[in-house]
Design a protein around this nucleic acid. Structure first.
Length: 277
DNA sequence: ATGTTACGCTAATCGGAGCA
DNA sequence: TGCTCCGATTAGCGTAACAT
Protein backbone atom coordinates (compact mmCIF):
# COMPACT_ATOMS: atom_id res chain seq x y z
CA UNK A 1 0.00 0.00 0.00
CA UNK A 2 2.82 2.37 0.89
CA UNK A 3 4.55 1.77 -2.42
CA UNK A 4 1.32 1.99 -4.39
CA UNK A 5 0.53 5.36 -2.80
CA UNK A 6 3.97 6.77 -3.54
CA UNK A 7 3.91 5.51 -7.12
CA UNK A 8 0.40 6.80 -7.77
CA UNK A 9 1.28 10.17 -6.28
CA UNK A 10 4.29 10.46 -8.56
CA UNK A 11 2.07 9.57 -11.51
CA UNK A 12 -0.86 11.92 -10.91
CA UNK A 13 0.66 14.54 -8.66
CA UNK A 14 0.14 15.56 -5.03
CA UNK A 15 -2.83 17.77 -5.76
CA UNK A 16 -4.81 15.10 -7.54
CA UNK A 17 -4.14 12.72 -4.65
CA UNK A 18 -5.43 15.28 -2.18
CA UNK A 19 -8.53 15.80 -4.30
CA UNK A 20 -9.06 12.07 -4.35
CA UNK A 21 -9.17 12.07 -0.56
CA UNK A 22 -8.30 8.41 0.01
CA UNK A 23 -9.23 7.07 3.41
CA UNK A 24 -8.63 3.77 5.15
CA UNK A 25 -10.39 1.64 7.69
CA UNK A 26 -9.95 -1.72 9.43
CA UNK A 27 -12.62 -4.39 9.59
CA UNK A 28 -12.12 -6.57 12.66
CA UNK A 29 -13.70 -9.86 13.59
CA UNK A 30 -13.76 -11.46 17.01
CA UNK A 31 -16.00 -14.40 16.48
CA UNK A 32 -15.87 -15.90 19.98
CA UNK A 33 -17.15 -12.64 21.43
CA UNK A 34 -19.35 -11.10 18.76
CA UNK A 35 -20.17 -14.08 16.55
CA UNK A 36 -18.84 -15.41 13.30
CA UNK A 37 -20.73 -12.99 11.12
CA UNK A 38 -20.33 -9.82 13.10
CA UNK A 39 -17.47 -7.51 12.47
CA UNK A 40 -16.57 -4.14 13.79
CA UNK A 41 -15.15 -1.44 11.64
CA UNK A 42 -12.92 1.46 12.58
CA UNK A 43 -13.92 4.91 11.40
CA UNK A 44 -12.30 6.10 8.19
CA UNK A 45 -8.72 7.16 8.73
CA UNK A 46 -7.17 9.71 6.37
CA UNK A 47 -3.55 8.83 7.17
CA UNK A 48 -2.29 5.46 5.97
CA UNK A 49 0.45 5.35 8.61
CA UNK A 50 -2.09 5.83 11.40
CA UNK A 51 -4.25 3.06 9.96
CA UNK A 52 -1.21 0.78 9.70
CA UNK A 53 -0.22 1.58 13.29
CA UNK A 54 -3.67 0.48 14.50
CA UNK A 55 -3.48 -2.56 12.26
CA UNK A 56 -0.18 -3.51 13.92
CA UNK A 57 -1.63 -3.13 17.41
CA UNK A 58 -4.70 -5.22 16.61
CA UNK A 59 -2.47 -7.85 15.01
CA UNK A 60 -0.31 -7.99 18.16
CA UNK A 61 -3.41 -8.60 20.28
CA UNK A 62 -4.53 -11.35 17.95
CA UNK A 63 -1.03 -12.82 17.98
CA UNK A 64 -1.42 -13.38 21.72
CA UNK A 65 -4.20 -15.88 20.96
CA UNK A 66 -2.41 -17.53 18.09
CA UNK A 67 -0.25 -20.57 18.06
CA UNK A 68 2.23 -21.24 15.27
CA UNK A 69 1.19 -18.11 13.44
CA UNK A 70 -2.45 -19.06 12.96
CA UNK A 71 -5.18 -18.53 15.48
CA UNK A 72 -6.28 -22.03 16.20
CA UNK A 73 -9.79 -23.34 16.51
CA UNK A 74 -11.13 -24.42 19.87
CA UNK A 75 -9.91 -21.28 21.58
CA UNK A 76 -11.06 -22.77 24.86
CA UNK A 77 -8.56 -25.60 24.57
CA UNK A 78 -5.66 -23.21 24.46
CA UNK A 79 -6.76 -20.33 26.68
CA UNK A 80 -8.57 -19.90 29.93
CA UNK A 81 -11.74 -17.84 30.11
CA UNK A 82 -9.74 -15.25 32.05
CA UNK A 83 -7.18 -15.04 29.22
CA UNK A 84 -9.90 -14.61 26.62
CA UNK A 85 -11.62 -11.96 28.72
CA UNK A 86 -8.37 -10.10 29.21
CA UNK A 87 -7.70 -10.19 25.47
CA UNK A 88 -11.22 -8.96 24.75
CA UNK A 89 -10.88 -6.07 27.20
CA UNK A 90 -7.64 -4.97 25.59
CA UNK A 91 -9.24 -5.31 22.16
CA UNK A 92 -12.20 -3.19 23.30
CA UNK A 93 -9.92 -0.51 24.71
CA UNK A 94 -7.92 -0.37 21.48
CA UNK A 95 -11.07 -0.29 19.35
CA UNK A 96 -12.54 2.52 21.44
CA UNK A 97 -9.31 4.44 21.04
CA UNK A 98 -9.38 3.84 17.29
CA UNK A 99 -12.97 5.09 17.13
CA UNK A 100 -12.75 8.08 19.43
CA UNK A 101 -9.07 8.97 19.63
CA UNK A 102 -7.23 9.90 22.82
CA UNK A 103 -8.81 13.22 23.55
CA UNK A 104 -12.46 12.47 22.95
CA UNK A 105 -15.39 12.98 25.24
CA UNK A 106 -16.26 10.35 27.80
CA UNK A 107 -19.72 10.20 26.27
CA UNK A 108 -18.61 9.07 22.84
CA UNK A 109 -16.28 6.47 24.36
CA UNK A 110 -19.17 5.18 26.43
CA UNK A 111 -21.33 4.97 23.31
CA UNK A 112 -18.76 2.78 21.53
CA UNK A 113 -18.35 0.61 24.64
CA UNK A 114 -22.12 0.20 24.76
CA UNK A 115 -22.24 -0.86 21.12
CA UNK A 116 -19.56 -3.50 21.77
CA UNK A 117 -21.36 -4.70 24.89
CA UNK A 118 -24.56 -5.14 22.89
CA UNK A 119 -22.74 -7.26 20.30
CA UNK A 120 -21.19 -9.40 23.04
CA UNK A 121 -24.56 -9.81 24.70
CA UNK A 122 -26.20 -10.83 21.42
CA UNK A 123 -23.63 -13.59 21.03
CA UNK A 124 -23.93 -15.01 24.55
CA UNK A 125 -25.85 -18.11 23.40
CA UNK A 126 -23.09 -19.03 20.97
CA UNK A 127 -20.44 -18.74 23.70
CA UNK A 128 -22.53 -20.79 26.11
CA UNK A 129 -22.92 -23.53 23.53
CA UNK A 130 -19.19 -23.67 23.01
CA UNK A 131 -18.60 -23.86 26.75
CA UNK A 132 -21.09 -26.71 27.03
CA UNK A 133 -19.44 -28.63 24.20
CA UNK A 134 -16.04 -28.05 25.77
CA UNK A 135 -17.30 -29.39 29.10
CA UNK A 136 -18.71 -32.49 27.43
CA UNK A 137 -15.45 -33.22 25.65
CA UNK A 138 -13.46 -32.91 28.85
CA UNK A 139 -15.83 -35.07 30.88
CA UNK A 140 -15.48 -37.84 28.33
CA UNK A 141 -11.71 -37.49 28.31
CA UNK A 142 -11.66 -37.65 32.11
CA UNK A 143 -13.84 -40.75 31.93
CA UNK A 144 -11.32 -42.51 29.68
CA UNK A 145 -8.47 -41.67 32.05
CA UNK A 146 -10.45 -42.95 35.04
CA UNK A 147 -11.21 -46.25 33.31
CA UNK A 148 -7.51 -46.69 32.59
CA UNK A 149 -6.59 -45.92 36.21
CA UNK A 150 -9.21 -48.39 37.51
CA UNK A 151 -7.73 -51.16 35.34
CA UNK A 152 -4.20 -50.52 36.64
CA UNK A 153 -5.49 -50.46 40.21
CA UNK A 154 -7.29 -53.82 39.84
CA UNK A 155 -4.10 -55.40 38.56
CA UNK A 156 -2.10 -54.02 41.49
CA UNK A 157 -4.66 -55.38 44.00
CA UNK A 158 -4.50 -58.87 42.48
CA UNK A 159 -0.71 -58.78 42.65
CA UNK A 160 -0.78 -57.71 46.34
CA UNK A 161 -3.21 -60.50 47.22
CA UNK A 162 -0.93 -63.08 45.60
CA UNK A 163 2.13 -61.83 47.47
CA UNK A 164 0.20 -61.92 50.74
CA UNK A 165 -0.90 -65.55 50.17
CA UNK A 166 2.66 -66.60 49.41
CA UNK A 167 4.01 -64.97 52.58
CA UNK A 168 1.34 -66.66 54.72
CA UNK A 169 2.14 -70.05 53.21
CA UNK A 170 5.84 -69.51 53.88
CA UNK A 171 5.18 -68.67 57.53
CA UNK A 172 2.86 -71.62 58.06
CA UNK A 173 5.36 -74.03 56.53
CA UNK A 174 8.16 -72.66 58.71
CA UNK A 175 6.04 -73.04 61.83
CA UNK A 176 4.98 -76.53 60.81
CA UNK A 177 8.61 -77.51 60.29
CA UNK A 178 9.49 -76.23 63.73
CA UNK A 179 6.61 -78.22 65.27
CA UNK A 180 7.70 -81.40 63.50
CA UNK A 181 11.31 -80.94 64.58
CA UNK A 182 10.11 -80.40 68.11
CA UNK A 183 8.02 -83.63 68.00
CA UNK A 184 10.97 -85.58 66.61
CA UNK A 185 13.23 -84.26 69.31
CA UNK A 186 10.68 -85.32 71.93
CA UNK A 187 11.00 -88.93 70.77
CA UNK A 188 14.78 -88.81 71.14
CA UNK A 189 16.32 -89.10 74.57
CA UNK A 190 15.51 -85.90 76.25
CA UNK A 191 18.16 -83.22 75.97
CA UNK A 192 17.85 -80.23 78.17
CA UNK A 193 17.26 -77.17 76.01
CA UNK A 194 19.51 -74.21 76.46
CA UNK A 195 17.58 -71.14 77.64
CA UNK A 196 19.04 -69.17 74.72
CA UNK A 197 17.53 -71.68 72.23
CA UNK A 198 14.13 -71.34 73.89
CA UNK A 199 14.30 -67.55 73.77
CA UNK A 200 15.39 -67.55 70.12
CA UNK A 201 12.49 -69.79 69.15
CA UNK A 202 9.95 -67.65 70.95
CA UNK A 203 11.38 -64.50 69.39
CA UNK A 204 11.21 -66.03 65.88
CA UNK A 205 7.57 -67.00 66.36
CA UNK A 206 6.70 -63.64 67.81
CA UNK A 207 8.32 -61.87 64.83
CA UNK A 208 6.41 -64.01 62.36
CA UNK A 209 3.13 -63.33 64.09
CA UNK A 210 3.94 -59.61 64.20
CA UNK A 211 4.61 -59.50 60.46
CA UNK A 212 1.40 -61.40 59.81
CA UNK A 213 -0.56 -58.86 61.84
CA UNK A 214 1.10 -55.97 60.02
CA UNK A 215 0.22 -57.50 56.65
CA UNK A 216 -3.35 -58.03 57.79
CA UNK A 217 -3.66 -54.41 58.90
CA UNK A 218 -2.26 -53.22 55.58
CA UNK A 219 -4.74 -55.40 53.72
CA UNK A 220 -7.66 -53.95 55.73
CA UNK A 221 -6.42 -50.44 54.97
CA UNK A 222 -6.19 -51.30 51.27
CA UNK A 223 -9.75 -52.59 51.31
CA UNK A 224 -10.92 -49.38 52.93
CA UNK A 225 -9.15 -47.29 50.28
CA UNK A 226 -10.60 -49.46 47.53
CA UNK A 227 -14.09 -48.85 48.94
CA UNK A 228 -13.52 -45.09 48.90
CA UNK A 229 -12.25 -45.25 45.34
CA UNK A 230 -15.27 -47.29 44.30
CA UNK A 231 -17.57 -44.64 45.79
CA UNK A 232 -15.69 -41.97 43.83
CA UNK A 233 -16.11 -44.04 40.69
CA UNK A 234 -19.86 -44.24 41.22
CA UNK A 235 -19.98 -40.47 41.58
CA UNK A 236 -17.98 -40.04 38.38
CA UNK A 237 -20.15 -42.51 36.53
CA UNK A 238 -23.18 -40.36 37.36
CA UNK A 239 -21.47 -37.25 35.97
CA UNK A 240 -20.34 -39.23 32.96
CA UNK A 241 -23.86 -40.40 32.20
CA UNK A 242 -25.08 -36.80 32.39
CA UNK A 243 -22.33 -35.72 29.99
CA UNK A 244 -23.27 -38.47 27.55
CA UNK A 245 -26.92 -37.47 27.64
CA UNK A 246 -25.98 -33.85 26.96
CA UNK A 247 -23.67 -34.87 24.13
CA UNK A 248 -26.37 -37.03 22.57
CA UNK A 249 -28.86 -34.21 22.90
CA UNK A 250 -26.50 -31.79 21.08
CA UNK A 251 -25.91 -34.34 18.33
CA UNK A 252 -29.60 -35.13 17.84
CA UNK A 253 -30.41 -31.44 17.76
CA UNK A 254 -27.78 -30.88 15.07
CA UNK A 255 -28.91 -33.88 13.01
CA UNK A 256 -32.56 -32.93 13.23
CA UNK A 257 -31.75 -29.44 12.11
CA UNK A 258 -29.67 -30.77 9.23
CA UNK A 259 -32.45 -33.12 8.13
CA UNK A 260 -34.99 -30.35 8.36
CA UNK A 261 -32.85 -27.99 6.30
CA UNK A 262 -32.10 -30.66 3.68
CA UNK A 263 -35.46 -32.31 3.18
CA UNK A 264 -36.89 -32.53 -0.34
CA UNK A 265 -40.04 -30.49 0.24
CA UNK A 266 -38.30 -27.52 1.85
CA UNK A 267 -39.95 -24.27 0.81
CA UNK A 268 -38.82 -20.68 0.85
CA UNK A 269 -41.47 -19.98 3.48
CA UNK A 270 -39.96 -22.69 5.67
CA UNK A 271 -36.54 -21.16 5.28
CA UNK A 272 -37.78 -17.69 6.14
CA UNK A 273 -39.78 -19.06 9.06
CA UNK A 274 -36.75 -20.94 10.32
CA UNK A 275 -34.62 -17.84 10.24
CA UNK A 276 -37.12 -15.99 12.38
CA UNK A 277 -37.01 -18.77 15.04
C1' DA B 1 -26.46 13.71 -2.90
C1' DT B 2 -22.72 11.97 -0.77
C1' DG B 3 -20.13 9.96 2.93
C1' DT B 4 -19.97 6.57 6.57
C1' DT B 5 -21.11 2.52 9.09
C1' DA B 6 -22.97 -1.99 9.85
C1' DC B 7 -23.86 -6.16 8.22
C1' DG B 8 -24.58 -10.28 5.02
C1' DC B 9 -22.84 -13.66 1.82
C1' DT B 10 -19.23 -16.33 -0.08
C1' DA B 11 -14.82 -18.61 -0.56
C1' DA B 12 -10.63 -20.06 1.20
C1' DT B 13 -7.20 -21.48 4.65
C1' DC B 14 -5.63 -23.76 8.66
C1' DG B 15 -5.26 -26.72 12.79
C1' DG B 16 -7.52 -29.75 15.86
C1' DA B 17 -10.83 -33.38 17.06
C1' DG B 18 -13.25 -37.43 16.08
C1' DC B 19 -13.85 -41.54 13.64
C1' DA B 20 -13.32 -45.71 10.76
C1' DT C 1 -3.19 -43.18 9.83
C1' DG C 2 -5.88 -40.80 6.67
C1' DC C 3 -10.20 -38.61 6.04
C1' DT C 4 -13.82 -35.52 7.25
C1' DC C 5 -15.92 -32.08 9.82
C1' DC C 6 -15.78 -28.03 12.75
C1' DG C 7 -14.61 -23.50 14.14
C1' DA C 8 -11.73 -19.22 13.79
C1' DT C 9 -10.19 -16.10 10.76
C1' DT C 10 -9.33 -13.30 6.55
C1' DA C 11 -10.78 -11.13 2.50
C1' DG C 12 -13.67 -9.29 -1.23
C1' DC C 13 -17.93 -7.68 -2.75
C1' DG C 14 -22.38 -5.67 -2.17
C1' DT C 15 -25.90 -2.96 0.00
C1' DA C 16 -29.19 -1.07 3.46
C1' DA C 17 -29.44 2.34 6.81
C1' DC C 18 -27.98 6.28 8.84
C1' DA C 19 -25.50 10.90 9.09
C1' DT C 20 -24.18 15.18 7.16
Amino acid sequence: MRRALVETESEVGVEAMEDLGLKFFLTLSKSYWIGRLSRVQTPLIACLETALAYRRQFAELQQALSHGGVVSCRLLNRHSIADLEDNWHRFSALYIEACCGDASSLKSRQAVAKRLAALVEANSAHREKQLRAWNCRHMLQEERLQRQAARTERHALLRDARTERHALLRDRRAMGREDRDEARRRKLPRRRKLPSELVQRVVRRWERLQSQRRRHEAAVLQQELAKQRAAARVELATQRAAARVELRRCRTEREERWRWMNRRDLTMADLLGQRAV
